[in-house]
Design a protein around this nucleic acid. Structure first.
Length: 857
DNA sequence: AGCGCAGAGGCCTAA
DNA sequence: CCTCTGCGCT
């Protein structure tokens, strides 16, 4: 199958001038039609089928296209059958997209690609196949974060640990972190295990795992971690998968965590040659009991040929990882950028291909994004280039507060809409999901259709979780968490006392709650009323389980919801959202149709993150920067570029410099989502925890190159005192507005000045002239410059970049000059204020712009 | 058992 | 600002 020849496609005359990537370029003119239109690097990435390949694909360089074309190529070359290709992504969205594109390319649906999916879904599938080796049954439940926390809470209670001091959430985070690093309870470094509850952390992790087995449940981390364990302990099983997967493709490799990395490494070894190696691994794992080094999993585990010179032949099969270190934004959930940085070391003989030609964004946008990301130190370094025109500059707009920001963006959107552009081509990308609300409110009043992507997940809603709990109990009677959730929903008179009693009973007899209930019903331990209710519940579930055999799963679900009284509960509820909840329940039942049976549905539901309602309607997309990765839009709004929010203070506090760099990558991701227009906003006042606070513009604004950025005024200008115009006089007596409308540079200078002068307006005081004049001086840091910043800031030199260009103490323009503006067209100057001009544009109306952006007409 | 209220704590990002 | 918890009352 995989002979080590480097030339893969049908031979083609090598007639092109030669340099690196010649072969690929040569072939570019001929070949299968799916190769047409690929650039030489892309083509190289598609056609290098043998051995490890790392494709460093910058934003918008055709990453997905390469992946899908590569699969098509493998298939059409007869190198492997669809079922022999393992292709992993992080999100369902990405997986779906790949399936979709493959379908288009191959001209038929891709049911034949059973191993194309997310890490979690594929990991889960493998685990189900060998569930018994992890002390589970194949119908195990996947617990989400909520279940996880509830379970841990129970454990903490059982151990008499004060969950005020030691919140279950924190423990959940720790356990997640350990699992992300591939650590089983016994492998957790003692020092780390001790940080929780005075040393009980490790023990709690262990008992949590035990509880999971009893509940016949796994959490997200287990879906990979248990696979790894099974692979290590059962070389024969590992070999079976190694033989099956002839090709491995990995999307977003920069986001892989240690566990995913280990999982991939195990699978990427060539089967026939690995068995001794694997056995070696098992041996090395055998002593995992005690005294492991802190990074046990990292250091000790991968005794792959790759990791050392000790092995002569790199028996690594054809793995192709695609990623972009500049888009690594999941460090907080254990992603190891190191994985991508170390690739060549881990997979010796790896070919590294860089995709640097961007097909998405215009020159200004790309330049702004590149310039921003260039402030990061830890990167492999890529230079994105485009052959597109410069296009419009990235705009930066200051607003008084977040409401005005939303208003301004709303207006801008309406304007775009008036130009005839699709709402589908507009996205608002926020740092934190709580920012979304303001936009939703605004859009509702405007009647602007929008959709929230990746917001509160469908299955996280209470009614959905309740409904699922019913189904889970039917499917897996040992699922105590689910049973507990619904035993008294709707109210049946089975309160805490009863549940506590069941718990005791269950623990004593080591049986699930449900079985305990069945047993208790026959005793007189409960009061008649509770006893009757409980008996009814047990009988209902027995009945439903029996019906399951003869009833379609969608019908069964409907029956369960109706007979349990759950539907009725919401019908009686007169609160505002009851109707919506009923609607959601209907939607849930409807969505079950896509699955073959109840089991299949439950397997997927916890892993499927996105609810995809109405994707075909024309609507503005609202989402977090994180969930925007991989998407693109003509128009992208980036609100909330303020210190504390973006970059997030918490990230800075917790991760320091690394955190800052990750935030910056997030900014880079945001900007590179835009094809034609990127519009950044910052507000001077924002609600934090419900109280208004004054904020400072994000340092990232200063890191944007002046040449590609334009400072504009908010269009939601009414908050500026009621009129669109502005003037020194106005700001003189409106202290609060003083700094709101400045460029970032101003604002810094302003804050600086205020500190110096001992005024405390939170940066909000100071007259207009003052701002203007201090504009230039901000390029050189004042003595106490750093003091107003929440964190110590880096060298201030960057400050000058944005400032310098737009700085000018006096403008060369004067009143009623006829001017031209790249974006707004022709207009007449109606007011001059330092370097800020107010111009009445013929078409765009009155605008405030910095003079360097206009020229005399 | 169940309801309503007051107080506390959280808002980062995700499968 | 919003949700969750615990408490006291019915």
């Amino acid at each position: 199958m995989t002979e080590p020849s480097k030339i893969t496609s049908e031979s083609v005359p090598d007639h092109q001038p030669a340099a690196g990537g010649i072969a690929a370029r040569a072939r570019a003119s001929v070949g299968p039609k799916y190769l047409a239109g690929l650039n030489p690097e892309q083509r190289d990435a598609v056609e290098t089928l043998d051995g490890p390949v790392l494709v460093l694909a910058g934003a918008g360089t055709g990453k997905t296209r390469v992946l899908t074309t590569r699969i098509a190529h493998i298939l059409s070359q007869g190198r492997a059958r669809p079922a022999e290709i393992l292709s992993v992504t992080f999100t369902n969205k990405a997986a779906r997209e790949m399936k979709h594109r493959l379908g288009q390319m191959l001209g038929h649906a891709v049911e034949g690609m059973p191993w194309l999916g997310t890490f979690h879904s594929i990991g889960g599938r493998i685990l189900r196949t060998h569930a018994e080796l992890a002390q589970l049954k194949s119908n195990f439940t996947v617990l989400d974060t909520d279940d996880q926390v509830r379970l841990l809470k129970q454990l903490l209670q059982a151990d008499n640990i004060d969950d005020k001091r030691w919140p279950a959430r924190m423990l959940a985070g720790l356990i997640d972190g350990w699992k992300n690093r591939g650590l089983t309870p016994s492998q957790v470094p003692p020092g780390e295990a001790a940080v929780f509850a005075n040393g009980k952390g490790g023990k709690l992790y262990a008992s949590y795992q035990e509880r999971l087995k009893i509940l016949n449940a796994a959490d997200f981390g287990d879906l990979l971690l248990e696979d790894i364990r099974i692979f290590r302990e059962h070389p024969d099983i590992l070999r079976q998968y190694q033989q099956r997967f002839k090709y491995i493709l990995v999307d977003e490799y920069q986001d892989t965590n240690v566990a995913q990395y280990l999982w991939l490494r195990l699978l990427s070894q060539a089967p026939s040659l690995t068995s001794p190696r694997v056995r070696g691994e098992v041996a090395s794992q055998g002593d995992e009991g005690e005294g492991d080094s802190p990074s046990a999993a990292l250091v000790e585990t991968p005794p792959l040929p790759a990791s050392g010179a000790r092995e002569q032949a790199p028996h690594i099969k054809n793995i192709c990882c695609v990623g972009d270190d500049d888009q690594s934004i999941y460090g907080w959930r254990g992603a190891e950028v190191d994985n991508i940085l170390r690739f060549e070391h881990d997979f010796p003989g790896a070919k590294v291909i860089r995709l640097e030609r961007n097909y998405r964004s215009t020159g200004h946008i790309l330049a702004a994004a590149s310039h921003l990301i260039a402030h990061n130190e830890g990167r492999l370094g890529k230079t994105l280039r485009t052959e597109d025109q410069d296009g419009e500059k990235v705009t930066v707009t200051g607003s008084w507060d977040s409401e005005e920001e939303a208003r301004g963006i709303g207006e801008e959107i309406e304007q775009i809409q008036r130009k005839g552009e699709k709402l589908n081509e507009i996205a608002i990308l926020v740092r934190a999901s709580y920012q979304m609300r303001e936009f939703e409110d605004r859009f509702v009043t405007l009647g602007l259709p929008y959709r929230v992507i990746g917001g509160p997940r469908f299955y996280e809603r209470a009614e959905i979780r309740d409904a699922l709990a019913y189904l889970r109990v039917i499917n897996s009677p040992a699922d105590d968490l689910a049973f507990e959730r619904i035993v008294n929903v709707p109210k049946r008179g089975l309160g805490d006392a009863t549940v506590q009693m069941l718990h005791d009973h269950a623990r004593k007899r080591r049986i699930p709650l449900f079985e305990a209930a069945r047993a208790v019903v026959d005793t007189d331990e409960l009061k008649p009323k509770a006893r009757g209710s409980l008996r009814e519940v047990v009988a209902q579930f027995d009945r439903w389980r029996a019906q399951r055999e003869v009833t379609a799963h969608t019908d069964l679900a409907q029956i369960v919801l109706d007979e349990s009284g759950y539907t009725e509960m919401w019908q009686k509820d007169r609160s505002a959202d009851a109707a919506g909840r009923l609607e959601n329940l209907k939607e849930l039942v409807r969505s079950m149709e896509e699955f073959e049976n109840l089991q299949g549905f439950l397997e997927h539901i916890s892993l499927v993150m996105d609810r995809d309602s109405g994707a075909d309607e024309d609507a503005v997309s609202l989402m977090t920067l994180h969930s925007a990765k991989g998407l693109e839009f003509d128009n992208v709004f980036l609100p909330g570029w303020e210190e504390g929010l973006f970059p997030s203070q918490r990230t800075l506090d917790e991760q320091g410099r690394a955190g800052l760099e990750e935030e910056r990558r997030l900014g880079h991701v945001g900007l590179t989502r835009a094809r034609r227009r990127a519009m950044i906003y910052f507000a001077t006042n924002r609600r934090i925890h419900g109280t208004w606070s004054t904020t400072i513009p994000s340092r990232f604004l200063d890191e944007l190159p002046a040449a590609n950025v334009e400072i504009t005024e908010s269009k939601g200008g009414s908050a500026w005192g009621g009129t669109g115009g502005y003037g020194a006089s106005r700001f003189d007596d409106m202290e609060a507005f003083g700094s709101t409308y400045s460029t970032p540079g101003w604002q810094r200078a302003q804050a600086n000045r205020n500190r110096g002068g001992g005024r405390n307006g939170g940066g909000g005081s100071g007259g207009f002239e003052e701002q203007t004049s201090s504009f230039t001086s901000s390029a050189s840091p004042g003595p106490d410059f750093g003091s107003f910043s929440p964190r110590r800031r880096g060298p201030m030199t960057i400050e000058g970049e944005l400032v310098a260009k737009s700085t000018g103490t006096t403008s060369e323009f004067s009143l009623s000059d006829r001017v031209f503006h790249q974006k707004f067209g022709y207009g007449r100057v109606t007011k001059v204020d330092g370097n800020k001009l107010t111009i009445a544009f013929d078409k765009a109306g009155e605008k405030k712009v910095v003079d360097s952006f206009v020229q005399l007409a």
